[in-house]
Design a protein around this nucleic acid. Structure first.
Lengths: 142, 142
DNA sequence: GGGTTATTGTTGTACATGCAAATATAATTT
DNA sequence: AAATTATATTTGCATGTACAACAATAACCC
């Protein structure tokens, strides 16, 4: 069944969550190339671009709760892709050499992913949609 | 931090999941009025509109995996809002009187929710966005 | 009719995410 | 300097969702 055929196709809750699930599935496929779920991959890319980044900054950048960020970092630590150093109340997260080696592949994943939905949807169309979603999400202050 | 300030604000994975999380939070607030999480509420509304609806149909209507539908039904059964009857391999899900009593309140929740984001975003803008999201989600066959 | 295949639904398990509370440290106030 | 308040991070617990494997039944084909 297509989403448009659902009686809830007019509802923002329904459509945004259905879309997110579908997009995530696509992303999961793409990110299998580096054996990471997308959420882990995005955190790792942020840390690679800004080594030493703190969880609070990651929380803002990724729009995830601090607790979620902690959990993601734990997983990446287990895979030896990041290390954490704590002094005082502050924590710094650094990428390991293993993560740096992975970086080129990750960049390819990003490209492949955006290519894939640009092919499906058209470049202009998809970038307009993304901008609209951003605008709306930012208006939803809770 | 706003989503637009994130370095991932151009990425469909990031924006669609961030938007979905925000919208879900808003929906959760609204649906507290009937003490149901939105996912449960939507399933229940579907069953109220079409008593006896089967899990496979619910899976299509709600765009959720069958296993997820089973879990939602279990929760609603615990709350005495639906009952299940099985004959052969088919299962029918029926709303209880308690659910029917709740129906008017649920309709109000739907209205309140759509009102809330229409106020924030404008009626035209938000309905256009929803349609775009539907169109795109439907193109993402996986 | 009997064997194969397809459909329907449920379970076991895993993971992502969040909230609220706890912890630890820093900053501020008095 | 002590007490209070604010900030950063982590933990306990709960929930939602999915995949894969399973079970049960129905449909099909020979």
């Amino acid at each position: 069944m297509n989403i448009r055929d659902s009686k809830y196709a007019q509802c923002l809750y329904f459509t945004s969550s259905a879309l997110a699930r579908k997009v995530e599935k696509l992303a999961i496929q793409v990110w299998k190339a580096v054996d990471l779920p997308p959420s882990h991959a995005y955190l790792l890319m942020a840390v690679l671009e800004d080594p030493g980044m703190q969880p609070s900054a990651l929380s803002g950048e990724l729009q995830l709760q601090p607790s979620t960020v902690t959990r993601l970092i734990e997983k990446l630590e287990e895979k030896k892709l990041v290390v954490r150093t704590t002094e005082g109340k502050l924590t710094n997260v650094y990428p390991t050499p293993k993560a740096k080696e992975l970086q080129p592949k990750m960049i390819k994943c990003v490209q492949q992913f955006s290519q894939q939905y640009a092919d499906l949807l058209g470049v202009d169309e998809s970038s307009r949609l993304v901008q609209d979603m951003v605008a709306i999400a930012d208006k939803l202050k809770l």
